[in-house]
Design a protein around this nucleic acid. Structure first.
Lengths: 361, 361
DNA sequence: CTTCGTGTAGAAAACGTTAACTATGCTGCC
DNA sequence: GGCAGCATAGTTAACGTTTTCTACACGAAG
């Protein structure tokens, strides 16, 4: 009764969770014992163990992750950052990461950038402050911020020196001396193959609907397209390249504009399947049949490609596998040497031929 | 020189991040001053400020979120849990949450359950341990775990008493006395409206492809369908209800089986647009034209509905808005009274008529 | 009957912040 | 000239864990 804080008089923290100390008091043991029961890495007598277990249940105790992290326990949190969850390809990759992470008992933090590179940098910083075990960047870079590259390099180093790792998934490496892992798939090669396919079918004038001008994925696919044109001896036609964003609406609008302007092309290469869906919609509006009047191809080979009519010829990218690979590299890096230099893995892509292209002479 | 740890001799933590104390030492000030520079809530002299800023930059310091959280600073982390990121409707809702959260400066944690209710419980527990400001559950419940309801109720209470909040988005409430917020949309009503539409077009025999038997969304939609049949005086035909999962493959397989068995129906009501895509695929395989030979309708009205040919008649659900609403309620609850009882909001749905249904007599 | 393990328990020092106190020069005023 | 008031700065006690390190019985062995 000499205790200064009389029960019920002035409970100072009414709505806060019970702490380990509360459990200890309730069970009549020391905090250390409770911690040991929880961790199970030290002998505790049967009776003490039972009392603690009971107290935990009765008080509805749950350990404070932050305190635990501070005391030096690995948090097992992996972060991934992408432009937008709604994109099917991103979602597939995200699923791969999440799947693999949770299989290995890790928690996933997610952040989205809407393609803003400033926001991307801010998110990586935030994840570093969260002491995430790894940070995975999914999807192409939109290289707008002035110091983007330098800043991201700094962050990669900073993460690495804190025992974490930056994983670039589906985007170009930062440089040889930057400690980060890279999981890529071949955008240039895939586009090259696809354009070759179109050319072999006799299409000499193909409208290429790219993504944003400064977006790596977009530029790589465009580069592959151009290289194929060049190799087949087709002159470069700048008026046959259009830049937009990776959405259905963008594909629709751009195609519509071109068709309205009466420009002459026999095929459209959309930088993405959803963009191709927009192309279909625009073609339908002008009473053009695909592929008889207009051939259309896409990139990504998401489920949608099979639901479009005619079914869309596209470049297959193993997004989910990409995500899984990224997660695995990230998680394996936990046991990495401090002077580790970086992993690099390149996935291949291939053309899936369906019914959206016809021969043209 | 009397100092026991000679510099450079045995740096005990070579690869760890610099701490606030390191910055303080580097700048020649006390830790408190550094903290104050960071927080900016206390006067600091110009010179000290500048030195600290410089040290932070030079050491590449980043504050430890865990220590900060432990010291009582709100972490501003919101968690959301869904079955699978790949589902377009979930992704839309998730996007709504993420968008609103980041707009208000919050970080999002994401977890996926693959429809496993045990895993869902485990994730909510985990998020509670992370001291998330709110936990949003998106999508229907699959009520399999024995004590699911009781356990989730406990968790809701536990979260609430820790100043957090459980938000149920697109799933039924747990009970009146459970402190949680509920954001629903009317599955039953939407299905009722859609079946009424089919009936008004003369379809008396409609195959209903539901989701899992114990899944709330699935059951609500089925209930609406049944009520409409009843109200129109169409006898209940159990053989016209099929249970699967919410995927394209499931819709395809089930429809194919039914068509192969030669069963007689003039329309298919798929519980989800992606399931409807599978129905389309199966119909095509049997050379059935939609809608001339078979009418098909879906639910969710995701982008895909417009890309299917013929365009799919579906029930529109404002998923993104749902997500935004959930996030807002969750974030507003931060300033809630302790004896707060719960919010409830119901979004309405409506039929979007396209070209996948024809009149039948 | 001392002495040494062995099994179990507690005390206390981290971990990296924040915030409530103190402490110290100043400035200006009576 | 002493002192209130102010602008800064530093000290230190939390926050809730984990993890040494120490302590204490209790048998067994010498």
């Amino acid at each position: 009764m000499a205790n200064s804080s009389a029960p019920g008089s002035g409970r100072r923290k009414s709505s806060s969770s019970p702490t380990l100390a509360d459990v200890a008091a309730h069970a009549g043991v020391s905090p250390a014992t409770v911690s040991r029961v929880l961790a199970g890495n030290y002998p505790v007598s049967r009776s003490a163990n039972q009392r603690v277990q009971r107290s935990i249940r009765e008080l509805n105790y749950s350990a404070n992750t932050h305190a635990r992290a501070l005391a030096g326990v690995q948090t097992k949190t992996i972060a991934f950052i992408l432009a937008d969850v709604r994109g099917q390809s991103f979602a597939d990759a995200a699923h791969g990461v999440e799947q693999e992470a949770s299989r290995r008992g890790w928690l996933s933090l997610i952040g989205t950038t809407q393609g803003d590179s400033e926001r991307e940098l801010a998110l990586v910083r935030l994840m570093r402050e969260q002491r995430a075990g790894a940070v995975i960047l999914i999807g192409g870079v939109t290289n707008e911020a002035v110091d983007y590259r330098a800043k991201m390099t700094d962050l990669a180093r900073s993460l690495h020196s804190a025992g974490s790792l930056l994983v670039l998934c589906g985007r170009p490496p930062l440089g040889d001396d930057v400690p980060s892992a890279v999981i890529e798939y071949d955008n240039e090669q895939g586009a090259y193959a696809m354009t070759s396919h179109l050319l072999s079918q006799g299409h000499r004038r193909t409208l290429f609907i790219a993504g944003p001008e400064r977006q790596s994925t977009s530029m790589q696919r465009l580069a592959g397209h151009r290289r194929a044109l060049h190799d087949f001896g087709v002159p470069d036609a700048p008026e046959l390249v259009e830049h937009g964003v990776f959405t259905r609406a963008s594909g629709y609008q751009l195609t519509k504009n071109r068709l309205a302007a009466g420009q002459d092309f026999t095929a459209v290469f959309a930088a993405t399947d959803v963009v191709a869906a927009g192309v279909y919609a625009a073609a339908a509006e002008f009473d053009l049949r695909v592929p008889e009047d207009l051939s259309v191809v896409g990139y990504d080979d998401v489920e949608l490609a099979q639901d479009l009519r005619p079914r869309l010829t596209s470049v297959h990218v193993p997004y989910e596998e990409l995500g899984r690979a990224a997660a695995n590299i990230a998680l394996d890096s936990q046991h990495q040497q401090p002077n580790w230099t970086g992993a690099h893995r390149l996935f291949t892509t291939h053309v899936v031929v369906r019914n959206s292209v016809t021969r043209r002479d």
